[in-house]
């Protein structure tokens, strides 16, 4: 353990109000002045990423607000038009939810392929989003399903389309006094669901216990020979989990002929911005992303 413990402060909140109050104090939202960044409270949920940094001595010193015990942030509820997942829904809860497996199978698959069982018991969907790693496994699936996030602070609540949430590397539309409380997945009509095709493939450094080198989620609704509601999102190929609207546009309403697929691959190649790093290469990521697009459409064609 390389962290220097005296430099950290941690408190556990039991209610949402308690947590939001502490966040607001740090942000200067309540009478007092705004605190410098190092004095503001950073939320910590399952801790599956932060504790790794902590152990390596790389977690910034400061104040950490444990939100694990806030019951209001738990639970998966099903409505006719959508499914709401509390931000503290664990990967285990996601992977075990039968309706998610039917209608949002890429998210189920993402949960299955994230970390080890112990990590899945502890890691949360909200944490996976707020941690903002471009290599996270659930964001590409969430992007494919037009997820929306509810952000709450003492100032009030607001909904943000997930596709607009990440704004740059580790940058996001969450003010320092806000918490992600819910993730909403809109449900398609029964007719559309019948014709929807899901594809999720994580290319990790090994079969399990791996971080993504490329992660691809795709979906569309079959409209005769044509593709509609095309969604394509990738992880580990840009500074943020990336939805690819330009590639989608090539495919939307089109019949996926060889020429169309090749054109979409071309656009995808320019829409992503992979890099060389310790886990893989730019070349590999770009080529495999394009191959996965082909695989998605070719395999989908077989169904």
């Amino acid at each position: 353990m390389r962290a220097y413990l005296p430099e950290y402060e941690a408190v556990s909140a039991r209610t949402l109000v308690e947590a939001l109050t502490l966040l607001a104090q740090g942000a200067g939202g309540l009478d007092g002045p705004a605190q410098p960044p190092g004095r503001r409270w950073q939320p910590i949920a399952g801790g599956t990423d932060l504790m790794v940094l902590f152990s390596a001595g790389k977690l910034p010193a400061g104040r950490y607000l444990d939100i694990w015990g806030i019951e209001e942030l738990r639970g998966i509820t099903v409505a006719p038009s959508h499914i709401d997942l509390g931000a503290l829904s664990t990967f285990t809860q996601v992977r075990q939810h039968p309706l998610l497996a039917c209608e949002f199978s890429s998210l189920t698959q993402a949960a299955i392929e994230s970390g080890a069982i112990a990590i899945q018991n502890r890691g949360t969907l909200g944490g996976n989003i707020a941690n903002a790693s471009p290599a996270a496994d659930s964001p590409p699936a969430l992007l494919c399903y037009d997820a929306e996030l509810e952000l709450v602070s003492l100032r009030g609540a607001r909904w943000v389309p997930y596709a607009e949430f990440h704004t740059g590397y580790k940058q996001m539309q969450r003010a320092s006094d806000e918490l992600i409380v819910r993730i909403r997945l809109p449900r398609l009509s029964a007719v559309e669901r019948e014709r929807q095709v899901h594809y999720y493939r994580k290319v990790g450094t090994r079969k399990a216990q791996a971080i993504s080198k490329v992660c691809f989620a795709g979906s569309f609704v079959r409209d005769g020979e044509r593709l509609s509601r095309v969604r394509i999102a990738l992880g580990s190929v840009a500074p943020i989990p990336l939805r690819c609207p330009r590639t989608e546009a090539v495919l939307e309403g089109a019949v996926p002929t060889s020429a169309v697929i090749a054109a979409a691959q071309e656009v995808l190649g320019s829409e992503i911005a992979p890099i060389d790093d310790i886990r893989s290469t730019q070349d590999y990521r770009r080529t495999v992303a394009q191959n996965l697009l082909f695989d998605f459409l070719a395999q989908a064609a077989l169904h």
Partner: peptide, 20 residues
């Protein structure tokens, strides 16, 4: 595009596959 190929389990999940 191959249309009539045999269906085989693959590493990826497609429509209808229920990981659960």
């Amino acid at each position: 595009q191959p249309r009539q190929a045999e269906k085989q389990p693959s590493h990826s999940r497609l429509a209808g596959a229920r990981p659960q």
